[in-house]
């Protein structure tokens, strides 16, 4: 298992794009996990005398409209982004896999119903729907997680269902069934371990999507609330004071852009490394 993972990782880093992605992902993860140690300042410490400071040795990326250290806020923003991304993807992964496996084992009419539900959710203008939710419940981080998880559920559900269908006729499952293994046992011992790979690839490809939605909602003031340092909040802060200084908005926008690009590159390289069909083509 570990050897396989290392092998995949080597393959991911084999291409230029994959290596770039890997590096960026690593940086973001380190920033997110060890934010208090990586940051140079308290992200919320005000220093009104030092507003809109240019990058310097004390403030590596300068300061914002309240004199807070931008670099430290960006580092803490990584924690927020990763927290939202991982928790919502975990939720979607669990819900989607459960629904997908259920769909594959349900009779045809039930399966159709689940599939229609997937179609409806995944083709829905989810950001617009999110606005309706926020209108009722008010903006919060939890809101973002729930909305994103709902939108992503069909992704995982479809893949899980397809994988189960492909597995269902596998001889070893046939044998288990004949031996009288229950549904739960088959799912736990045979289906889940077999479909985990594709689902993890899918999860990694969804991370940049989640980061984008979270940042977008927070930028609108409809997601993570200030003063919590989300990248979207940082961009909004910078955007409001664009006439005073362009540095905060450019720095935080670029940070977000680089992060999403890095995760996209990583996700695609991972897919290419894991998906044997594509590997064959290269």
């Amino acid at each position: 298992m570990l050897r396989d993972s290392l092998q995949v990782l080597r393959q991911v880093c084999g291409s230029f794009a994959g290596a770039c992605g890997c590096l960026i992902v690593l940086l973001v993860l380190v920033a997110a996990l060890f934010a208090p140690f990586v940051a140079t300042h308290d992200p919320d410490a005000l220093d009104v005398m030092n507003r809109f400071a240019a990058p310097s040795a004390a403030n590596w990326l300068g300061t914002d409209h309240l004199g807070r250290d931008l670099y430290s806020r960006l580092v803490h923003g990584a924690s927020v982004a990763m927290g939202v991304a991982l928790s919502s993807i975990a939720l979607a992964l669990v819900a989607g896999t459960a629904l997908g496996i259920l769909a594959a084992w349900l009779p045809a009419s039930g399966e159709r119903l689940v599939l229609i539900l997937f179609d409806v959710i995944s083709s829905f203008p989810s950001l617009v729907l999110a606005l309706a939710f926020v209108a009722v419940f008010g903006p919060s981080t939890l809101m973002v997680v729930v909305i994103v998880a709902i939108t992503l559920t069909p992704h995982f559900g479809r893949v899980a269902r397809a994988q189960v269908l492909a597995l269902r006729s596998a001889p070893f499952l046939e044998a288990e069934r004949i031996l009288g293994a229950g549904f739960g046992r088959i799912v736990l011992h045979h289906i889940l371990p077999n479909i985990l790979g594709p689902l993890i690839v899918l999860a990694s490809m969804d991370i940049p999507v989640v980061i984008t939605i979270e940042a977008g909602l927070s930028f609108l003031g409809l997601g993570v609330r200030p003063p919590l340092a989300s990248w979207g909040v940082l961009i909004q802060d910078g955007y409001q004071f664009l006439s005073d200084s362009w540095i905060p908005v450019v720095v935080s926008s670029l940070a977000l852009a680089v992060a999403t690009l890095g995760f996209t590159l990583f996700g695609e390289a991972l897919r290419d490394a894991v998906d044997p069909r594509i590997r064959q083509e290269r």
């Binding site: 794009a17 961009i235 690009l261 996209t264 590159l265």
Partner: peptide, 10 residues
């Protein structure tokens, strides 16, 4: 990839 990855509001 870059075009796809970077959020439109950015």
């Amino acid at each position: 990839v870059a075009f796809i990855a970077v959020p439109s509001f950015v």
